[in-house]
């Protein structure tokens, strides 16, 4: 207990609060590891939010809803993949255009879904485990997606670090020419990575519209996609650090609201900018300590690949 805030509740809420940005960030991390910079995360998230919402409302099943959300995000990312991988278009501009398009399209699709309550997504039934003091609240009281987001981080980490597929993916991101020379299908691998990123962003969006809010409203993501992009940079392309970044950011956001609610005498306007400032501060501390180690960006990030032969 500090300042009248219960740490167990705080940790539990920050885990929930960071799920959308974490899912999207892990997806984008894989995309960037493959050497592709997709700035359209916000657009894919909101497409996931509306597609997931429509699917869940029409079928009555939250599970199908989440699948629908992932499909929606992946479908939009396919557009990006076609532009950048086939048509050789500039990645930064294509990503931004994707966001613009996604925001517009989601709003058009959602016109008839304003003011509807989606089917309920329940917590995972852990039975008596949920009643353990502290741990029960922090570890065993969540909906499936809180666990899924952590599993996703572990899976991506293991994939990148231990699997052959992960090695190839990283090779493509570090030097597409070398990977191509070794006979790997650079374009195909990148397209798969992009679609994975889209599906994860879509899942994050669906979590917003089906669990966090839960409702469809225009512009529901309210910038979460941009934060996810920043988290990838913060993490210097390492999955576990993405988890740290998302929890840090989500944690400070939740904490500042909790401090307000607990009426701690810090001016509100400084509290409300604190998540951004503290994220910068932590990044500065982390990047200054080990010099060049922080420069972990995949060497081919943002560069298009064209097989000359």
């Amino acid at each position: 207990m500090f300042g009248g805030i219960d740490p167990a509740l705080l940790i539990a809420s920050l885990m929930v609060a960071s799920v959308p940005i974490l899912l999207a960030a892990v997806g984008e991390l894989v995309v960037e590891k493959a050497g592709v910079l997709n700035l359209g995360v916000e657009g894919m998230m909101i497409m996931g939010a509306i597609c997931g919402f429509i699917t869940a409302v029409e079928t009555g099943s939250p599970t199908l809803g989440f699948l629908g959300g992932a499909a929606g995000g992946a479908a939009l990312s396919l557009l990006f993949a076609a532009l950048t991988q086939v048509m050789q278009a500039n990645q930064v501009a294509s990503g931004l255009a994707l966001t613009l398009f996604g925001l517009g399209l989601s709003s058009l699709l959602g016109q008839n879904y304003v003011g509807i309550k989606p089917p309920h997504t329940g917590a995972v039934p852990f039975g008596p485990l949920a009643d353990i003091p502290f741990l029960g609240r922090v570890v065993f009281g969540h909906d499936p997606f809180v666990y899924l987001s952590i599993i996703a981080v572990a899976a991506v980490w293991a994939f990148l670090k231990f699997s052959r597929g992960g090695l190839i993916l990283r090779a493509v991101g570090e030097s597409h020419d070398a990977a191509h020379a070794l006979g790997y299908k650079v374009v195909r691998i990148r397209m798969l990575a992009i679609m994975f990123g889209g599906a994860m962003a879509g899942l994050g969006g669906a979590y917003l519209s089906l669990v966090r809010v839960p409702q469809w409203v225009d512009g529901i993501t309210a910038g979460a996609g941009w934060i996810a992009l920043a988290i990838v940079v913060f993490a210097s392309w390492k999955p576990w650090r993405a988890l740290l970044g998302a929890w840090l950011f989500g944690g400070i956001t939740v904490l500042q609201l909790n401090l307000q609610a607990a009426q701690v005498g810090i001016p509100v306007e400084y509290l409300s900018m604190s998540p951004y400032l503290i994220t910068i501060l932590v990044l500065v501390l982390m990047s200054s300590g080990r010099g060049k180690a922080a420069l972990n960006a995949p060497a081919c990030l943002g560069q298009n690949f064209h097989a000359a032969r």
Binding site: W226, L229, M273, A294
Partner: peptide
Amino acid sequence: RFNTNEILVSLMLVYV
């Protein structure tokens, strides 16, 4: 000075 990534910092400063 600190080798901090400018993408993150400049974006965060928009919200500030």
